[in-house]
């Protein structure tokens, strides 16, 4: 499976997102869906860059494949602090301008955009698997009952 490994730093964000976007482009995913996938990838990577290695530097690895041009399967892994991002509580998206917090919005987007999200700790690695279909589930505003684990 195609893989890319890079230092977990903001300077590499664009290259890592492009690695994933190219797979979706090759499989002719719709442009809007590719932007949605890029959004989910950015939110996960920025979190890793910011929090995975508080006292040191480290790497992040991405593996990506598209199954039958239908499902993009992505794994993002790091060897930083054990952390399941899927446990971050959802923000209050109905809060007014003064009460509004942006914390938690990133993972909220990930859960909205991915069909499935699964976290596992494997040895010294945090591994987040995200699966994206060609179109976003619940795009009509309906929460789908799929496999996103809370």
């Amino acid at each position: 499976m195609p893989e890319i490994t890079s230092p977990a730093r903001m300077a590499h964000l664009e290259r890592l997102i492009q690695f994933v976007a190219r797979h979706a482009e090759t499989a002719h995913f719709p442009t809007q869906r590719i932007r949605e996938i890029e959004l989910a990838v950015e939110e996960i990577l920025v979190n890793i860059f910011s929090y995975a290695y508080p006292d040191t530097t480290g790497d992040v690895s991405l593996t990506c494949r598209v199954e039958d041009d239908l499902r993009l399967v992505l794994e993002i892994s790091d060897t930083g602090t054990p952390f399941n991002i899927l446990n971050v509580p959802a923000p209050n998206v109905a809060a007014g301008i003064y009460e509004r917090q942006v914390g938690g919005l990133g993972v909220f987007f990930v859960k909205k955009m991915a069909d499935e999200a699964h976290y596992r700790r494997d040895g010294d690695r945090n591994i987040l698997m995200l699966i994206f279909g060609r179109h976003r589930h619940g795009a009509e505003g309906q929460e789908h009952a799929g496999g996103v684990q809370e």
């Binding site: 932007r35 890029e38 950015e42 939110e43 301008i97 003064y98 987007f109």
Partner: peptide, 20 residues
């Protein structure tokens, strides 16, 4: 604008609060 992430929303919120 073809793309915005939560980092961009954070900036817009900062600007909107400042203007208020």
């Amino acid at each position: 604008l073809e793309y915005i992430s939560s980092a961009g929303l954070r900036s817009i919120l900062t600007i909107a609060k400042n203007l208020k």
